[in-house]
């Protein structure tokens, strides 16, 4: 069971993480909104590790079935999110290499 101190520690961490998320995004140009939305969509794919733990500690058949679904969905979030973001960003890369465009 989660201890009360651990709980408050987690709250502190969550607050700092919220600021981090805010600061990292706050000066983003509009053209990167799509890749960034896709990129953060990939990052919450970390749900996969939670799903793995949930299935790994499941004891009853019901828990196993639901845990299995969680891992399938989480894994799809991870790979799909990565590939979509990668494909979107790939285009930025190509145009960045265009000759005659001095940085």
């Amino acid at each position: 069971m989660i201890e009360i101190t651990a709980f408050w520690t987690a709250i502190y961490i969550a607050m700092l993480a919220a600021f981090t998320g805010y600061v990292v995004i706050s000066r983003v140009p509009a053209i990167l909104h799509t890749p960034l939305m896709s990129g953060s969509n990939f990052i919450h794919g970390i749900v996969l590790v939670g799903a793995m733990v949930a299935l790994g500690l499941a004891t009853t058949a019901t828990e196993q079935v639901i845990g299995f679904i969680a891992v399938v969905l989480g894994a799809a979030n991870v790979t799909g999110g990565y590939v979509v973001t990668e494909r979107i960003l790939q285009m930025f890369d190509r145009s960045g290499k265009k000759p005659g465009k001095g940085a």
Partner: peptide
């Protein structure tokens, strides 16, 4: 904590976006 931090970052960044 990995889930908490990554989740909150996406939550905050996503809300702003």
């Amino acid at each position: 904590y990995a889930m908490i931090i990554a989740g909150v970052i996406v939550g905050a960044a996503g809300s702003l976006l």
